[in-house]
């Protein structure tokens, strides 16, 4: 690793100014779990590192009935997993944070770093899309809000403009009856990163599902919403057959990535299995008896 300057701004303004001053040469440093690996493997070689640790504006997790949940970008995965507010209002998000990676990464990595790096082989993006999250982004000219689905542009590419800092993640106030489910699949038990994951949110009305969102992560360059599969599940009695049908549709509509962790065909197969399972489990059905 090269010599580099390590800057510790004390306010968001100061941090933004530094990023403006140094341009391409600077990189933002949150928990460092992704950045340092990239530097060690020489994929990134910043001359200046702007550490966000001192920015209190990026910390904290809070909930109000009017504004919903706000998670500061510097929140570590383990903080999100443990936060009572998250567990009460968005238990599925707490579950995602508690189950990703390994204890070391959860205790050091931040949600902001996770999202800004744009690595597809991660957990939070799909569930955040399914929960209608919005990202709060600060730049020299002010703050903007971007829907999670729009933030994810492509493989390792986000809507973050040069010099911008992600400050918080917002989730809307909880609607009664709305529930979330999440399932990740590891290629082998020794992997830490998912090869595919599925987030499912829905509102139950009279035993039927409404407002269904089905989002695939990790198997795709960016989290992909499965509208056709979600539609198939809307307003219908959920049976194993229907779960299998929705899974088939999702697999068909998938835009899979293909890499060393899994070929496109393999990703499709895993997505199909995982969708069927999450739908069945959400409906209290046992999927293990019969295959899709």
């Amino acid at each position: 690793m090269r010599n580099l300057d390590y800057l510790e701004p004390e306010s968001l303004d100061e941090a933004l100014r530094m990023l403006a001053d140094y341009g391409d040469e600077a990189a933002v440093f949150a928990g460092g779990t992704a950045l340092l690996l990239a530097m060690r493997q020489r994929m990134l070689a910043p001359g200046i590192v702007v550490a966000l640790g001192g920015l209190s504006a990026l910390r904290g997790i809070g909930y109000t009935p009017e504004a919903g949940l706000r998670i500061g970008a510097l929140s570590r995965h383990s903080e999100i997993a443990r936060a009572d507010i998250v567990r009460e209002h968005y238990p599925v998000l707490a579950k995602v944070a508690a189950g990703l990676a390994n204890p070391q990464v959860r205790n050091q990595g931040t949600i902001g770093g996770n999202l800004c790096y744009g690595d597809p082989a991660t957990d939070p993006p799909s569930v955040l899309v399914a929960l209608d999250a919005e990202l709060e982004i600060a730049g020299r000219s002010g703050t903007r809000r971007v829907a999670m689905a729009d933030f994810l542009v492509d493989y390792f590419t986000t809507a973050l403009e040069p010099g911008e800092i992600l400050t918080a993640i917002h989730l809307p106030p909880v609607t009664p009856g709305r529930v979330g489910h999440y399932k990740r699949h590891l290629r082998t038990p020794a992997e830490h990163r998912p090869v595919a994951n599925v987030a499912l949110t829905l509102t139950e009305r009279g035993g039927l599902w409404d407002d269904v969102r089905l989002v695939i992560g990790a198997a795709t360059p960016v989290a992909q919403s499965m509208a056709r599969a979600a539609a198939a599940l809307t307003g219908q009695a959920i049976t194993l057959d229907l779960a299998a049908e929705a899974a088939r549709i999702a697999a068909e509509d998938l835009t899979p990535v293909s890499d060393a962790r899994g070929s496109a065909a393999f990703r499709r197969q895993v997505v199909r299995a995982t969708v069927r399972r999450i739908v069945a489990e959400a409906a209290g059905l046992d999927w293990s008896e019969a295959a899709a």
């Binding site: 290629r187 038990p189 197969q269 069927r276």
Partner: peptide, 10 residues
């Protein structure tokens, strides 16, 4: 053996 995903668990 998970016959849908091919995963083998010891």
């Amino acid at each position: 053996v998970d016959t849908e995903t091919g995963q083998v668990r010891l």
